[in-house]
Computed example of a mutant assay.
Amino acid sequence: MSIQSVDKTGAEATQDSTATDTASSLHSASQPGSADRGRSDNETVLSVQHVKKRIKRKMIIHDVTFDVRAGEIFGFLGPNGAGKTTTIRMLVDLIKPTEGTITVCGHNVNRDPEQALRHIGSIVENPEVYSYLTGWENLEHFARMQPDVDEQRIREVVELVRLDRRIHDKVSTYSLGMRQRLGIAQALLGRPKLLILDEPTNGLDPKGIKEMRAFIRLLASEGMAVFVSSHLLSEIQLLCDRVAIISRGKVLAVGGVRDLVETHSRMAVWQLEPYDQGLALLQKSPFVRIITNADELIDDSIVAASGDKAIFTEMDEEHIAGLVSQMIASGISVKGVTKINPTLEQLFLKMTEGEILE
Score class of each variant (00 low, 15 high):
residue 302 I to K: 05
residue 145 M to S: 13
residue 30 S to Y: 13
residue 213 R to H: 09
residue 52 K to P: 02
residue 15 Q to I: 14
residue 295 D to G: 12
residue 149 V to M: 05
residue 311 I to S: 10
residue 318 E to A: 14
residue 262 E to N: 14
residue 233 L to D: 08
residue 145 M to R: 08
residue 117 L to F: 08
residue 300 D to F: 07
residue 295 D to K: 15
residue 135 G to P: 04
residue 318 E to W: 06
residue 67 D to H: 04
residue 137 E to H: 06
residue 150 D to G: 14
residue 122 S to E: 10
residue 196 I to N: 03
residue 261 V to N: 07
residue 322 G to D: 09
residue 124 V to Q: 03
residue 18 T to C: 07
residue 352 T to C: 01
residue 310 A to M: 12
residue 165 R to L: 10
residue 214 A to V: 04
residue 119 H to P: 04
residue 63 D to L: 04
residue 349 L to T: 08
residue 252 L to Q: 06
residue 288 V to K: 03
residue 283 Q to S: 15
residue 107 H to M: 01
residue 214 A to K: 10
residue 40 S to A: 12
residue 123 I to F: 05
residue 148 D to T: 04
residue 130 Y to H: 09
residue 345 E to R: 05
residue 227 F to L: 11
residue 153 R to F: 03
residue 15 Q to P: 06
residue 83 G to W: 02
residue 260 L to N: 02
residue 352 T to W: 02
residue 233 L to W: 03
residue 280 A to F: 08
residue 307 G to A: 03
residue 211 E to Y: 13
residue 213 R to D: 08
residue 20 T to C: 10
residue 4 Q to Y: 15
residue 161 V to C: 03
residue 324 V to E: 06
residue 149 V to I: 06
residue 236 I to M: 13
residue 271 Q to M: 05
residue 255 G to H: 00
residue 85 T to F: 01
residue 174 Y to V: 00
residue 345 E to Y: 02
residue 131 S to A: 12
residue 125 E to R: 10
residue 248 R to A: 12
residue 212 M to C: 05
residue 271 Q to D: 11
residue 302 I to Q: 08
residue 96 K to P: 06
residue 44 T to C: 14
residue 63 D to E: 04
residue 88 I to W: 06
residue 161 V to N: 09
residue 242 R to Y: 00
residue 32 P to H: 00
residue 218 L to A: 03
residue 65 T to G: 01
residue 248 R to W: 08
residue 14 T to H: 14
residue 179 R to N: 05
residue 172 S to V: 08
residue 58 K to Q: 14
residue 301 S to Q: 14
residue 127 P to I: 06
residue 220 A to F: 02
residue 82 A to L: 03
residue 266 R to K: 15
residue 166 R to L: 04
residue 89 R to M: 05
residue 140 E to W: 05
residue 179 R to G: 04
residue 261 V to S: 07
residue 94 L to P: 04
residue 261 V to M: 11
residue 337 V to G: 11
residue 197 L to P: 09
residue 19 A to G: 14
residue 97 P to K: 06
residue 27 H to Q: 15
residue 305 A to V: 03
residue 69 R to T: 00
residue 157 V to W: 13
residue 38 G to C: 01
residue 165 R to K: 15
residue 169 D to Y: 11
residue 182 L to K: 00
residue 158 V to F: 01
residue 276 D to H: 12
residue 22 T to D: 15
residue 284 K to S: 14
residue 160 L to D: 05
residue 286 P to H: 02
residue 346 Q to D: 14
residue 159 E to F: 06
residue 86 T to G: 05
residue 68 V to I: 09
residue 11 A to F: 13
residue 163 L to C: 01
residue 146 Q to V: 12
residue 336 G to H: 06
residue 296 E to Q: 15
residue 60 I to Y: 07
residue 233 L to Q: 07
residue 289 R to E: 15
residue 99 E to H: 07
residue 325 S to E: 13
residue 130 Y to W: 13
residue 237 Q to C: 10
residue 48 V to F: 00
residue 197 L to M: 13
residue 307 G to S: 11
residue 338 T to M: 10
residue 136 W to K: 13
residue 91 L to D: 06
residue 58 K to T: 10
residue 125 E to M: 07
residue 169 D to I: 02
residue 241 D to K: 10
residue 36 D to A: 14
residue 131 S to L: 13
residue 120 I to Q: 08
residue 35 A to H: 11
residue 325 S to D: 10
residue 97 P to G: 05
residue 74 F to M: 03
residue 209 I to S: 08
residue 99 E to M: 03
residue 61 I to R: 00
residue 346 Q to R: 12
residue 292 T to A: 13
residue 85 T to A: 05
residue 110 N to H: 09
